[in-house]
């Protein structure tokens, strides 16, 4: 697809909007359909689109496999880390009420907790999907 002008320009034009949409889906997930799982997949789809059009090497310069692999682990760490932090603050594991700055409004803590946890989900799902895509797409080339 290196020669197709329409596809190249179209993909370049679409990618920032897809990434923006993924972030919207993530941060607006409390008020409308969406959340970390969907946002992670959409974000990964943006990079898959770029890789399909511009080639794997070009995308891996921006987003190396090492980084996405790290993302996959980092997200789980964020999720589990939130649980540990709430425990250190004297509440249950993943008891987000501990994160509230004002103890009379524990639901604020829930809000922060959900955002952080969803961030962990986003990072893991994004990392996993891109890593798996890289591995499948890269396998054919390295050998031959």
């Amino acid at each position: 697809m290196r020669e197709e002008v329409i596809i190249r320009v179209g993909a370049k034009f679409l990618a920032p909007f897809i990434i923006m949409f993924a972030l919207y889906v993530h941060f607006h997930g409390d008020y409308s359909p969406g959340g970390g799982f969907q946002a992670g997949v959409i974000l990964a789809a943006a990079f898959a689109l770029l890789a399909l059009v511009y080639g794997l090497e070009a995308v891996q310069k921006v987003l190396p496999l090492r980084f996405t692999r790290m993302c996959a682990a980092l997200g789980v760490l964020i999720f589990a880390g939130v649980g540990v932090v709430t425990m250190l603050l004297g509440h249950n594991y993943l008891g987000y009420n501990a994160l509230a700055s004002d103890p009379t409004h524990p639901e604020h803590g829930q809000h922060y907790g959900i955002l952080l946890v969803e961030l962990g989900v986003l990072v893991t799902v994004f990392g996993v999907m891109v890593t798996v895509f890289y591995l499948f797409a890269g396998r054919g080339r390295r050998g031959s």
Binding site: G35, F37, V41, V125, V128, M129, V132, L135, F136, R139
Partner: peptide
């Protein structure tokens, strides 16, 4: 089901990797 879908694609990718 929301979580099951994402886990489903993850396990599918393991299956495809095995097929490869």
């Amino acid at each position: 089901i929301l979580t099951a879908i994402v886990v489903g694609i993850a396990t599918t990718s393991v299956g495809l990797a095995l097929a490869v």
